[in-house]
């Protein structure tokens, strides 16, 4: 990873359909997130937030534009220059609206799986997963299955999993939607802490305007157009 940017997008565009049925979901999105920066992405439903997130998460390729992650050109137009899944495994962490833990794995196993698929030896993966759970304050729930964890605990385990491989960026899609205000703020502050301590770029899609003070930058999206908002940043 060559420069100080966690992620850069240039002219990122996504068009669904063609001709009369053509829908522009995202148009010329230019976004730069530095290492250690926590960015919020606001916007109403259908504004294109998820399209942007899935594009920079290498899940849904754009129709046009470029994506650089850690300075490396990863996507150029609809063409992925790297194996998307392998790249996600190593450099991108995901946190979702719901915790999205695998129900048949315990808390520690949910973190371990992210490490083991990245070729960590089992013992080292176990140790690293335990460290992360401890760091996030849920070490005492390590052997519990997701169904027996509270919403906040599940979200912390999900964050631990996202952090496991020390990614360049973490993409979070409304990670506090299922949490109450206090827990939601805790999770947002956790992202800020992680970003600042580990130099990870964090992009959080949120509707929760109460916690905007936590973010270093705020982007707003409407009708597929993204712009940086100075007013949202404290």
């Amino acid at each position: 990873m060559r420069n100080g940017f966690a992620i850069e997008t240039k002219g990122l565009t996504k068009v669904y359909g063609s001709g009369n049925t053509e829908v522009v979901a995202m148009s010329n999105a230019d976004v730069t997130i530095r290492r250690g920066e926590v960015a919020a992405l606001l916007g109403p439903s259908g504004s294109g937030k998820s399209t942007f997130l899935t594009a920079i998460g290498l899940i849904n390729p754009p129709s046009a534009g470029q994506i650089r992650i850690g300075g490396e050109l990863v996507v150029d137009g609809p063409v992925a220059l790297r194996d998307a899944r392998s790249f996600r495994r190593k450099f991108i962490g995901f946190v979702f609206q719901k915790s999205n833990l695998i129900p048949f794995l315990s808390a520690i196993e949910n973190v371990r799986i992210a490490l083991e698929i990245n070729a960590w030896p089992a013992a080292a993966a176990r140790e690293r997963a335990m460290e992360l759970l401890d760091y996030l304050g849920v070490a005492d729930r390590a052997d519990h299955y997701p169904a027996t964890l509270s919403g906040g605990q599940q979200q912390r385990v999900a964050v631990a999993r996202a952090l496991a491989n020390q990614p360049s960026i973490i993409l979070a899609d409304e990670p506090t939607a299922a949490l109450d205000g206090r827990l939601g703020r805790q999770v947002m502050e956790l992202f800020r802490k992680l970003a600042h301590e580990h130099g990870t770029g964090v992009v959080v899609v949120t509707h929760d305007h109460r916690a905007l003070d936590v973010f270093d930058s705020v982007y707003e999206m409407e009708d597929g157009v993204i712009r940086r908002s100075e007013s949202g940043v404290q």
């Binding site: 899944r85 996600r88 495994r89 695998i102 992210a114």
Partner: peptide, 15 residues
Amino acid sequence: HDIALLKLIGAPNRR
């Protein structure tokens, strides 16, 4: 859903 999640976090198909 779990399989999609595994793919999302980068699990290879063989796994």
